[in-house]
């Protein structure tokens, strides 16, 4: 098998893994096993995988409230992810973060964020740190179309540009910020167009075409590693689920969603791989099965894991842990 084919299959596998993770998460949420809120990235897998497949383990990413896919694509451990979603002590954040706040610093995942556009300033810091330390790492900031209208977008792109920081700003333009459509909230036709205002390259790509996403990311990563500065990439995509699980979705029609099912990035890549005779039915079945069995194990791990001790709520605030009892007496 050609090397390309190996990579393609790996991309496909990763997209399927995210799809299944998200689908199962939706089911667990519906069954009342996950507290709080869940934002699923179903339909946007090509963006997570296409970009993260170009990164090394030591590269950084910041992600968003819709971040499970990015974490998985950057190598996140699904056991610790499910455990975190369920608020267990074995979770990434020992149950303190939940779905919207998963981080794994050992994998360069500098965290998801509950604040829209919260990742921009942090990625500038990561980029600056890379530059000061003189390594050839890169840093990727994932953000939504909604985030592109917030001030941190502007400040971060300007700074990254004047200092030529090794950053990819990756917009996942899924057409909506919660209930608000991109065209209503944004004064230009495409987020990529805004790169002009910062004197950096901007590219708008079909975010449901994994190979196109990957190609754009490869180019930007190369630029960044060579010290040529940041790139703005817009992956045009669509979220097939509601903004959050339980979203009544009054802001769009069923037909619109159904139209986009045709452009499902996984289906498209699956067909492509089959046409190219890289994937056959049997292999495909095995891929889905293997992933399901890994995820089922992970869910079992999470469900069996204990909840944290209530007193744990008082720990981890500072590096030098303050005595929890003292904390409480001062609370």
């Amino acid at each position: 098998m050609k090397e390309d084919h190996q990579i393609w299959l790996e991309l496909y596998r990763m997209m399927v893994k995210i799809r299944r993770f998200e689908t199962l998460t939706g089911e667990l949420f519906a069954a009342g096993k996950i507290p709080g809120f869940i934002h699923l990235s179903i339909g946007q897998e090509a963006s997570s995988v296409g970009v993260c497949s170009t990164l090394r383990p030591e590269d950084y990413i910041t992600t968003t409230h819709r971040g499970h896919g990015h974490v998985i694509a950057k190598g996140g451990d699904v056991k610790r992810m499910f455990a975190e979603l369920m608020g267990r002590s074995t979770g990434y954040c020992k149950g303190k973060g939940g779905s919207m706040h998963i981080a794994d610093f050992s994998l360069g995942i500098l965290g998801a964020n509950g604040v829209v556009a919260g990742g921009f300033p942090i990625i500038v810091g990561a980029g600056l740190s890379i530059k000061l330390r003189g390594t050839d790492q890169v840093a990727v900031c994932f953000f939504g179309d909604g985030a592109s209208n917030r001030g941190p977008f502007h400040e971060a792109l300007n700074m990254a540009s004047i200092w030529k920081l090794p950053i990819l700003f990756v917009c996942e333009n899924n057409q909506f910020a919660s209930t608000t459509s991109f065209h209503y909230s944004t004064s230009v036709k495409s987020v990529a167009q805004r790169s002009i205002a910062y004197g950096i390259p901007g590219r708008s790509v079909d975010g449901n075409d994994i190979l196109e996403v990957r190609e754009a990311a490869l180019e930007a990563v190369e630029r960044a590693r060579k010290g040529e500065g940041p790139t703005l990439i817009e992956n045009r995509t669509y979220r097939l689920r509601g903004h959050f699980e339980g979203d009544p979705q009054r802001y769009r029609t069923k037909e619109e969603v159904e139209n986009f099912l045709e452009k499902d990035p996984i289906k498209r890549f699956q067909e492509f791989l089959k046409n190219e005779k890289i994937l056959n039915e049997e292999m495909d079945r095995q891929i889905w099965q293997a992933i399901d069995s890994e995820l089922t194990d992970a869910i079992r791990f999470a469900e069996k894991s204990p909840y944290p001790q209530p007193m744990e709520a008082l720990r981890d605030l500072y590096a030098e842990d303050v005595d929890p009892l003292f904390q409480r007496s001062l609370a």
């Binding site: 600056l128 971060a156 700074m159």
Partner: peptide, 28 residues
Amino acid sequence: PGRVIDTPISETAIVGAGLGAALTGMRP
């Protein structure tokens, strides 16, 4: 030289840059 860095007037990004650098091995 190079370790005292002038910024544009962008307090959000200045503090955020401090944070991001602190998370990745620096002491801003």
